[in-house]
Amino acid sequence: MPRLRRNGEGAEVIMAVHPSGTVTLAGRELFLGGQAELLAHIESLLPAQSVHTVITPNVDQALNLVDDARLRRAYDEAEIRITDGFPLVKLGHLLGGSRLERHTGADLLPLVAAQARRLGWRIAVTGGEEHIARIAAETLRRRFDADVVAVPFPRITSVEDDGSRKVVDELVQLKPDLVFVCLGSPKQDVWVSHWRSELPPALYVGAGAAVDFVAGTKKRAPATIQRLGAEWIYRLVQEPRRLARRYLIRGPRFVYIALRSLLLAKESAR
């Protein structure tokens, strides 16, 4: 696949559907298929012999790819790119990518926990408030009888902060199969990319607020609202100060990506 194309200011981020049926965002292939196919793909990677990463592109991340070189590196390194953002899924469908489905880190954490006992997986959750990660791990152990361990994550000034070594060392000792890193994007994705050479073999998932949802400290939108693509409104009402800029100021810039993608698809079809 081609790498991100550059314009005068950063990288040109477009979505494209190729004759082979693959769907790419910023030149990198997105995962196609439903939950069963995603679980099968994850199972095929475990037990891991090296560090694999799952990244979850949404509108905000697509916009960050334009100017954030470290996030682009993490995006390029990812083994699986699951499409989190509803607008991205709808754009993919408009372009002809009918098999593009929405998957989120919040969905994936309980999904793999439900399979963990049967498949012998150990899951680590880290990031966010320590007590929240601990409650989330306890909840998943109780609900699924899964081997889930919370790894405390210190407050760090940057992803390079040496305070991260305590997390790396604990993960090395735990030898998990999957690690859900819940720091929010781009921080979670850049953190894994930066420490990649020292992390133990496992599948690392950038999972945002997944621990908060499992612990019950934040509520997800009802399924009906999710299917309508209005989950962002539900979250904005819950956290207006944190999310207003993302959704109301930055979000509309996605229109350029969508229009550019549709225009290039039309040109290539001639």
Rank of each mutant, 00 (worst) to 15 (best):
A221G: 07
A69M: 08
T217P: 08
A210I: 07
I233M: 15
Q35M: 11
A136T: 02
L262F: 05
R242I: 01
V51L: 12
S20R: 12
V167F: 04
Y247R: 08
R250M: 12
G127F: 08
I42K: 04
R242L: 06
S261G: 09
A269G: 07
I14E: 14
R134I: 01
R70A: 15
M1F: 10
F31C: 04
P2C: 00
L262K: 02
D67W: 11
A137G: 05
I132L: 08
L248S: 10
R5G: 02
F254Q: 04
G85L: 09
R99I: 01
L228G: 01
R5M: 12
E101I: 00
V125D: 02
E198D: 14
P252G: 13
R246F: 04
E130R: 13
L108Q: 08
Y75I: 04
L100Q: 06
E37N: 07
L95K: 10
A258N: 08
A106K: 02
R5W: 01
A230R: 14
A40F: 02
R220M: 13
Q35P: 13
E29I: 02
R155E: 12
V125Q: 03
E198A: 14
S20W: 01
R165M: 09
V179N: 11
D147P: 08
A124M: 07
G34M: 03
L263W: 15
A69Y: 04
P2N: 12
D60R: 05
E170W: 01
E239A: 08
L264P: 00
L178V: 11
D68N: 15
L46R: 09
I233L: 15
I55T: 15
L94R: 15
Y75N: 06
D189F: 03
L45K: 11
S20A: 14
L203S: 07
G97L: 03
R134Q: 15
N64C: 12
A11K: 08
R241D: 11
R122L: 08
R73A: 14
P87Q: 10
A133F: 01
L32Y: 00
A16S: 15
V237P: 00
Q173I: 09
R196H: 14
P57F: 10
Q61N: 04
A146H: 06
R270S: 14
I80N: 04
R220G: 13
G33V: 04
V89H: 07
Y75K: 09
N58F: 04
E138Q: 15
R260N: 12
A215Q: 09
I55C: 09
R142P: 00
A210S: 15
G85W: 05
I249E: 06
S98H: 12
L25H: 03
L111E: 13
E129I: 11
S164E: 06
L140C: 09
L100P: 03
L71R: 01
K90E: 15
Q61I: 15
V179D: 12
